[in-house]
Design a protein around this nucleic acid. Structure first.
Lengths: 227, 227
DNA sequence: CGAAGTTGACTGACTGTTCAGTCTATGGAG
DNA sequence: CTCCATAGACTGAACAGTCAGTCAACTTCG
């Protein structure tokens, strides 16, 4: 973060810092109120600057919001990579993926991050430029999942599977579950979502389905979809 | 349509017709441009009325757009029920579900219907009233899926499974896949999405995967077929 | 000094909503 | 049957608020 040398001699530091504050503020606001209900005045206020300065930095509102979207995405993947680095076991990694997407408050980032995804999708659906970004983003996400699987195979933790195919299907499942949880569907509780996502992964990857942590004592009616 | 007796003597017919035209126009616009970029002027123009009249009917822009959302949802489920009524076989029903959600242009409704879902989610995330609607909507959707499964079990087409649990997981998977397809992810093509969704269903329901995805040889009566 | 950073005041366009009526048709009174 | 009163559908014009973006001045710093 401190390494950006834009060619300016003196202090890109304070400039970059401002920029980032603004982007972070914008991302927060978007998550809270939505893309179109975010005013530059609000961003400025939260960033501790004047509205004019925000325009001075980003030129236009659209550019600011779009960059904020990208900024937030990057932050998410940074956190993700961080998580992977400190979690060597494949099962725990998979579990982390699930909690990261399906359990509210699991990430120490802003809790309302889901709001960002909804707006990102809506925006991507209509603006090709955002769409391009989102595609890259998702490709990165799936390949992160896939490489965890590949690592697991290489480490002999699981038997060989089609990592790409798994990533594709599982990522879609996670998205779908995350939507329900984010929208607080009373039927799809976070625990339920985690169960479903884990069951799928266990079956597809041949993970041992035994929970290392607690297990419901007498609950034998666990909906395993083994047919 | 013709049954509404509001106490007005003359013709509630034309009123309801106007209302519906406006709602349909609004739904179209929302799908095209997004919720927040839809102006009442645009709705009025498309509906062949004056902006004032739109307000006259709906009181406020928000009410109009919210009702339009609900209107479109209802239309979707109407089409869905229609489809089920004319498709007795469980496998074909499942296939129809998949194409309905994951194949663009499969529905004869407006093609941009996905845009509506993105906006519905974004709106539901922040406005509790819309959220309530969406929850009902999804409950209906899942129970539709579940009842198809239950019917299949009752008809001995498949062996007994937890229909609710299947509906939950499968609906989430469909949502996730639909997102990718709607956003034209180059990796997740419609065919790919269909494959994944069908594989999951086949495995979870114990459907015979033997039948390749192909229309039955000759079906004399196709009530509707695109493509 | 000069360039970059910063700001408050201002503006111009946009747009939801109101309002004061116009138009049409129904239905009862004469 | 005619005529007017009434109601509801409908409209154009104005209103009022919002908000992104401009501008000229001021500050800070090298």
């Amino acid at each position: 973060m401190a390494g950006n040398q834009g060619g300016v001699t003196t202090s890109p530091n304070i400039v970059d810092q401002r920029r980032e504050t603004m982007l972070a503020s914008a991302a927060e606001l978007i998550a809270e109120r939505g893309f179109s209900d975010t005013r530059i005045t609000d961003v400025a206020k939260r960033a501790g600057a004047s509205p004019s300065l925000v325009i001075y930095y980003f030129g236009t509102k659209d550019k600011l919001l779009t960059e904020a979207l990208r900024y937030s995405e990057d932050a998410f993947y940074l956190a993700c990579a961080d998580m992977l680095a400190s979690t060597p076991d494949i099962r725990q990694r998979i579990e982390r993926f699930v909690t990261l997407t399906c359990v509210p408050g699991a990430v120490d980032e802003q809790a309302g991050a889901w709001g960002l995804w909804f707006d990102l999708w809506a925006q991507a659906f209509r603006h090709p430029l955002v769409a391009k970004d989102r595609i890259d983003l998702d490709r990165r996400w799936r390949s992160t999942i896939a490489s965890v699987v590949v690592d697991g195979v290489a480490a002999n933790e699981i038997s060989k599977v089609d990592a790409e195919a798994f990533a594709l299907a599982w990522a879609a499942l996670l998205d779908g579950l995350a939507i329900q949880v984010a929208l607080e569907d009373p039927v799809v509780t976070p625990e339920r979502a985690v169960d479903i996502a884990m069951s799928f992964a266990e079956q597809a990857l041949g993970l041992p389905p035994a929970h290392p942590r607690r297990q419901p004592p007498e609950k034998s009616s666990h909906p395993r979809n083994g047919s």
